[in-house]
Design a protein around this nucleic acid. Structure first.
Lengths: 267, 267
DNA sequence: TAAGGGTGTTTCAAAAAGTGAAACAGCGTT
DNA sequence: AACGCTGTTTCACTTTTTGAAACACCCTTA
């Protein structure tokens, strides 16, 4: 028995089921059959068939007539395009990132919370010894990246516990945190200090430092992280300490944009 | 009374309503209030409130706590990212486009059908006197662009009539086709010749030529268009005639990729 | 200050939609 | 030919969805 991802009690259960189907797609599962999906989501095949037909009819899924399997459809990219244009955050981030990128070798990331994952809204490589590891729209876990930890730490305790009990709380590398105690310890540290670090817990050779972006109501609406190649930095501690004020500064600059404006944005 | 966009009878009406809400967002309407949305979609405000709460709970919408209005949420860009990686069409198109782009001044577009619109999956500017006018995820009408006409022409007659009766069949410039007779005449011509043209019917100064991309079953799965600045071409007819074999060649090359492979694609 | 027009939200009985076990039909492989 | 898989249909049952009305709130206007 599987419990629905983030959500406690949503008013429209049928719609919620349809959205669960959309969220079942991932980099490792790009297409689904009806019964396969029904098994995964613990739903009746007849129900899944009806929902999937509706999703496909509206362009959110596409049916491969050969294999009878379903993949995501073109409707989603239209929505994403609208989201990226209307949402000022990525624009602000790019503007700020660009004013730093030619001075540092790090990669810059802006991400926000989506369910139990970070979803990246803007990325930029600095003078780039490492390539950007995640692109806009990509997502990573909340416990395995600096950005994820930042976003997680500022959520409610009940949210954090729900995440810990979810299937997404799992190991990506040997150093990924898998112990709730350790995670909670880091969360308290993050809440106290206002920044998060990551030592190869998602990608082996990449470390990162992250700081929160606040809106006018002092809610965390996004996070910023700087990523660096770990093997190029002999004395880690010293360098990471240098990064902390930098990532804070960048995050604060973005916060200022967010708080200054709030809705005055033209596509 | 408004009839749902593309669809005749979808099995899950509640889900369909939720998707209609998502599709209500457009470049000109990036945020909605509950009652506003209810009016637009001819639904009960209570119903809209329930659906919108569910959509927001799953990350497909975001509620602005200040204004109580809803905008698209981060879940959509994750899906779009997955779509772009799993769908081989954009990759094929870029590969083919790049082999032509340094030889011509035109812009290259790949688009597919989404409801009653073209949605663009890949764009590339050639040696570029004009900037790209639409980006991936952007959409235009089916009667006002060459690409749109191609995609429309290969649909069923009943689909075409439904489109003509929809609100999307409207003028963008003074030369946009608004007369059903004229549109039908062009559709028959396109079906006969296999290509479509556009003389500033969507953007005043831009003309284009388009050709269809076929899958293994000879269904049109996408279209390709080349756009050129109209004011730079004194004798239009001659130049357009030169473009036709070119756009056909490009479309056919992409068709070959599509037909060769069909599902062997690694993200 | 009060009225008016806008907003989102709640109620609850009536109505409609969703549900799912089982049976069916089709396609490969065993 | 039997098995195991697929997606699909049926139809009585159950549950969810529905919506008019009332409510509460925030503005702007009179």
């Amino acid at each position: 028995m599987e419990q629905p991802p983030v959500i406690e009690m949503l008013p429209s259960q049928t719609l919620a089921k349809g959205l669960r189907i959309l969220n079942a797609f991932s980099p490792t599962r790009t297409s689904w059959g009806i019964r396969e999906l029904a098994r995964e989501l613990d739903m009746n095949p007849a129900t899944v068939a009806r929902l999937v037909t509706t999703l496909a009819g509206a362009g959110f899924l596409e049916r491969d007539p050969e294999t009878q399997r379903y993949a995501l459809g073109p409707a989603v990219i239209k929505l994403a395009n609208l989201y990226m244009h209307h949402n000022p955050l990525p624009h602000y981030a790019r503007k700020v990132f660009e004013s730093y990128s030619d001075r540092f070798d790090y990669n810059f990331y802006l991400g926000t919370l989506n369910g139990y994952q970070v979803v990246y809204l803007a990325v930029l490589d600095g003078r780039g010894r490492i390539k950007v590891m995640v692109e806009p729209g990509g997502s990573t876990g909340l416990h395995s990246t600096a950005l994820g930890k930042i976003l997680l730490a500022y959520q409610s305790d009940s949210f954090i516990n729900a995440f810990i009990n979810s299937r997404l709380f799992r190991a990506y590398t040997e150093t990924t945190i898998t112990d709730p105690e350790t995670l909670w310890a880091q969360i308290h540290e993050i809440r106290r200090t206002g920044y998060a670090v990551n030592h190869g817990e998602h990608f082996h050779d990449i470390g990162a430092v992250a700081a929160p972006v606040f809106n006018r109501r002092q809610e965390v609406v996004a996070g910023v992280s700087l990523a660096y190649p770990r093997n190029l930095i002999p004395n880690l501690q010293v360098n990471v300490d240098n990064l902390i004020p930098l990532v804070r500064e960048i995050a604060d600059n973005i916060s200022m944009y967010v708080q200054g404006d709030a809705r005055s944005h033209q596509p």
